[in-house]
Design a protein around this nucleic acid. Sequence first.
DNA 1: GAGGGCGTTGGGAACGTTCCCAACGCGAGG
DNA 2: CCTCGCGTTGGGAACGTTCCCAACGCCCTC
Lengths: 345, 345
Amino acid sequence: MAGNGRPTIKTVAARAGVGRTTVSRVINGSELVSSDARDRVLAAIEELQYVPNSVARGLVTNRTNAVALVIPESESRLGSEPFFAALIRGVSGALAATGTQLQLMLVRDQSERDQLTASLQTRRVDGVLLVSVHAHDRLPGQLDEMGLPTVLAGRRDAQEHLGYVDSDNSGGATQAVGHLLERGRRRIATITGALDMDVGCSRLAGWRTAHRAAGVPADESLIEAGDFTEEGGQQAMRSLLERSPDLDAVFAASDLMAVGALAELRRQGRGVPSDVAVVGFEDSVLARHTNPPLTTVRQPVEELGRTMARILLQEISARTASPATEPASHQQLTLPTELVVREST
Amino acid sequence: MAGNGRPTIKTVAARAGVGRTTVSRVINGSELVSSDARDRVLAAIEELQYVPNSVARGLVTNRTNAVALVIPESESRLGSEPFFAALIRGVSGALAATGTQLQLMLVRDQSERDQLTASLQTRRVDGVLLVSVHAHDRLPGQLDEMGLPTVLAGRRDAQEHLGYVDSDNSGGATQAVGHLLERGRRRIATITGALDMDVGCSRLAGWRTAHRAAGVPADESLIEAGDFTEEGGQQAMRSLLERSPDLDAVFAASDLMAVGALAELRRQGRGVPSDVAVVGFEDSVLARHTNPPLTTVRQPVEELGRTMARILLQEISARTASPATEPASHQQLTLPTELVVREST
DNA sequence: GAGGGCGTTGGGAACGTTCCCAACGCGAGG
DNA sequence: CCTCGCGTTGGGAACGTTCCCAACGCCCTC
């Protein structure tokens, strides 16, 4: 009985009148096959609609041709953060070209995060892309120990040793604040990102650098910590206005926080940019739709995703080529940013 | 040499002084193990940090515990469409609870789409979630023939036979247009979605239904086809204003198109809602941030994703339970929508 | 005291592929 | 005519797991 299932390599071999190995060779593009045999095999494959079973293949090659993209959902909702969408697009694009699959892992809370290591241990992926890593995060270290190739979006701190791709956070921030200074603003507040992430620190550092470069003393009381969310941005703006009603500009470390700041400014009847100039960071879709349209620092998010994927694939093939000679210098790249001036400054 | 790799089930068995099978039983929670043996096995697993190889498991069980989510990137950029982000969140949430992995497949163009069938054939996933399917799309049929459980987000047409989850598109649209009529608008235009998708047709149908219910004749010349994009919305608005300058309201079949319409209305100096009232569909994050904030029909996108995942998992386990008795009635669900009134009406 | 049953156990086979290596055929060279 | 070598070929083993089934030991019952 048993209307047999899908064809296997054996079925194809029988149909083509050759051995398993020959079929395997044809599939994997080996040269060691006579063109006669190759033709017969290809014909059999076509007739039987044969598709290799990648699970079986993965078992013996120890490769799955899949990578994981880990996104912490807790701190930044995928929906409100166009950043992740753009990143996914970039990653996916670079992977598609190589036939690598993308496994998306949204991590909601700590318990899911704890399961993550085990889940990645099960060898379903060849490598991991990590986004939004905090300085004290243990996951990257664990992955490294496990020998699972890993590339970060943004480094954990200045002496990151894993592979990573990052935007020029301090450079971009310097440019943004420099622009405000050029326009004559002197009381420039900043709403920082999470300060346990390098991206938060670096953008704050840029705020300082720009002041120093312009010879304008930076007033530390104009710094308010945010958390990259819209609500956080709004709240920070409120605190700042309360504490320093004389501020005449704000550099928010993300567009989303800038949106929150704009809302609070409007609520308090402050004109933008007449009373207070606002600059964001990222140039997400949001920035074009705020009122007024937001001056911001464009970071090439999609490009960042593409680059991460490319580097990860390189690490993976390097690893499989010489598993022993592992220390290999991990690639670390910083992508340039660009100031986009709109009507909020 | 050979600092041996990660432990296998055999290593654990040896360490615990039992056979492979017993270890397997413990891992899979079988009752047929003495508590003594179970303890020894668990101890060994802990000591060796053993994690089962899911690829090997998948080979014999013919299950991968992964599902694919296919998103056509061409027609609606993941970034600008918060819809997909919310959907992913819902899907991912429902899957996480069951330890199922999510494979994201962004399909950029037709060539990638052609590869898709083969890629899904390789048996790396147990089921497929399909988004944004056009009426003439061949993919769902192919998947069905392959015996790969499939659930659609939105049906292809009114007599869809595959499993699907959809928002109450016609109901929501009826409500939206009914709301405009109640507010005294009488020249209500509509910017439709792609009309080769049921979601486009149903929302247009709602526009008609509302007119009929209110006893107001629907002027077919107030219909303009859009494509769910912001640019498309803007362009449609321009055509409508040119053709029917006397219109006093617009129902756009998506928030994104409503945003485009708002831009065009502003450009032409029409007040919203004073001159023209605008209603969107979806209640994405966008809607709260437009100027003025957008009245829209909320569809529970995250819930939609969750439900799709749940149904798919059910189909998968049903399929593995009795592969022969396949015809099984596919589940089809419609989720209710809700009108959210803001300041654009 | 022998037989039967049940709770437990473990070895063999299989899943579908790749890789290693031995073997085959055939032409060329000695 | 035999041998060598090279271009091809295919069978066996392995990857790490689950499932089938036979076997083991022990207790209970007759």
